[in-house]
């Protein structure tokens, strides 16, 4: 494994200053404002929020799919969003996993996974399949490669979306509610995989991945080494590690924990 630079010696992966996020459905509606946030290389951030708090809009903006309506957002030093052709290489350093997978329904599962590799590296189907075989095996998607996405359950569709996002080996991965609606077996699988990606996965040559994901339930992340933030009432509040949540007197956090932790026991 190649040595990695100290986290603080590199420029931030994500740098937001005074950013306001519009709603994707109605651009005149602001879902979060005055966001000051810095994500450094290799960090893993959990953004918690109740339903309707604007988590998906926030994540879409983070992924560059929505333009912030105020403030500045730089991704790896590039002003977002970066749709210009000459910024494509920077853009491909970030992958996104949608909550419902957002698979292309006119393609099979295998074609969905191979699409970014075939498009950006101009590969034939056989060569793309050969290069992606380890990823497909790692995500246990082999039996469904020839299936239509609509025949898969939501959990598996999301997993196909993860495979598609990882196909180009991005450095940063943003995930929208990765554990939403999953059974305990799938949830455990996702928790283990995200932890491994954060540490450094063989598919990424052992390079620790920068992760940002939204959640509606904090319980599965109890004691994890992630950074936490809360999105509530148009405010984005970076809070720090799980241990530091205990001392927080943030009303938004208390409200969120009252929902996800009935007696607040998991924090004690």
């Amino acid at each position: 494994m190649t040595p990695h630079p100290e986290p603080d010696s590199t420029p931030p992966v994500i740098l937001m200053r005074g950013v306001s996020v519009p709603s994707q459905r109605d651009s005149s509606l602001i879902v979060a404002e005055s966001i000051d946030w810095t994500v450094r290389q290799g960090e893993s951030w959990v953004v918690a929020g109740l339903q309707g708090s604007g988590k998906t809009d926030f994540l879409m903006m983070t992924a560059g799919l929505i333009q912030p309506c105020a403030g500045t957002y730089e991704f790896l030093g590039c002003r977002m969003p970066i749709f210009e052709a000459d910024r494509l290489q920077e853009r491909l350093r970030m992958g996104m996993v949608f909550e419902t997978g957002q698979l292309l329904h006119h393609l099979t599962v295998g074609e969905n996974i191979a699409l970014p590799l075939r498009y950006h590296h101009n590969l034939g189907p056989a060569e793309a399949a050969r290069q992606l075989a380890p990823l497909v095996e790692m995500l246990e998607l082999g039996p469904w490669l020839g299936s239509a996405p609509g025949t898969l359950g939501k959990g598996w569709q999301r997993r196909v979306g993860l495979a598609r996002a990882l196909a180009l080996r991005p450095e940063v991965l943003v995930l929208d509610n990765p554990l939403g609606g999953l059974d305990p077996t799938h949830s455990r699988w996702w928790l283990a995989l995200l932890a491994e990606l954060s540490r450094g996965h063989p598919w990424l040559d052992g390079r620790p991945m920068t992760l940002v994901f939204t959640v509606a339930d904090l319980r599965p992340w109890n004691g994890s080494g992630h950074h936490f933030a809360v999105l509530q009432g148009r405010r984005f509040i970076p809070l720090g590690s799980w241990a530091s949540l205990e001392g927080q007197d943030e009303p938004a956090l208390r409200e969120l924990l009252a929902t996800s932790h009935p007696a607040g026991k998991d924090l004690k």
Partner: peptide, 10 residues
Amino acid sequence: EVEALEALGI
């Protein structure tokens, strides 16, 4: 699906 394509740089 269109946002998914944009997210993939396509």
